[in-house]
């Protein structure tokens, strides 16, 4: 990991397979080893990132406005309560389950929002001039986003388990609400958005020769 400029497949007029790492001449379109499509590391691929990102953001709105699940006690005689994501959390705090409230809060509010921000930022600065340190930091963020994205599904699974389990006829029953679907879709779309981002773009903006005093901007 020195500051020396590094020979990349792109600079050598070659193209590397993102799936298996095998290197091919630039004009080749599919990898002969693993069969994956070969994609050059340029900003055109960012369209896909933005499209999935927007779809995920759109689905995130109803996910927060509509109820996640409906709880019915004593066949509705004691009333049935509908809880959105935030209401469900308030309820957990109300009953003193602070640790679980924190897990739910992190998984369904912090992580999705942080993910939207990080992907948007990565896509905006991709390919722009950067220093080696900045590139390493961006790669780290990309890896965290990629790793953590799937964990937002927790909330969907919780609703699924509860509605299957709490079917006690007259006494109590839980049904899933429309927000469960839109939340699941939102998570899936942001995962696709993160997967469409090509981390090789992060490194495209590095100077060809290491010039001292030349700072990249972001």
């Amino acid at each position: 990991m020195s500051d020396q400029p590094v020979m990349t497949a792109h600079r050598a007029g070659l193209i590397g397979c993102r799936s298996c790492g095998r290197v091919w001449p630039e004009e080749q379109e599919t990898c002969d080893r693993c069969g994956a499509d070969l994609v050059p590391p340029d900003r055109r691929g960012l369209q896909k990132v933005w499209a999935w990102w927007l779809a995920g953001l759109v689905m995130y709105v109803p996910a927060n406005l509509f109820p996640m699940m409906r709880t019915q006690t004593f066949a509705g005689l004691q009333g049935s309560t509908e809880a959105t994501i935030l209401e469900g959390m308030v309820e957990l705090i109300h009953y003193g389950n602070y640790d679980i409230a924190v897990i739910v809060f992190v998984a369904s509010v912090i992580v999705p929002l942080a993910k939207f921000l990080s992907i948007a930022w990565l896509a905006m600065v991709a390919g722009q001039p950067a220093t080696v340190e900045q590139a390493h930091a961006r790669l780290k963020i990309y890896e965290v986003v990629e790793f953590i994205g799937r964990w937002s599904m927790i909330d969907v699974f919780v609703v699924a388990i509860l509605s299957a389990l709490v079917q006690l006829g007259f006494v109590a029953s839980i049904h899933p609400g429309p927000a469960a679907v839109s939340f699941a879709l939102s998570v899936a779309f942001t995962m696709l958005s993160a997967q469409s981002f090509d981390p090789r773009l992060i490194w495209r903006g590095l100077p060809l020769r290491s010039r001292t005093g030349h700072e990249g901007q972001d």
């Binding site: 020979m7 792109h10 193209i15 397979c17 790492g21 290197v23 981390p199």
Partner: peptide, 25 residues
């Protein structure tokens, strides 16, 4: 890159590109 006979810069034979940053190995 000193093992000159083991790779080929025109066809990509014997080379590996890092999937995360495109560096040639």
């Amino acid at each position: 890159m000193d093992a000159r006979d083991t790779f080929d810069l025109t066809t990509g034979r014997g080379l590996i590109a890092c999937p995360r940053c495109d560096a040639l190995h």
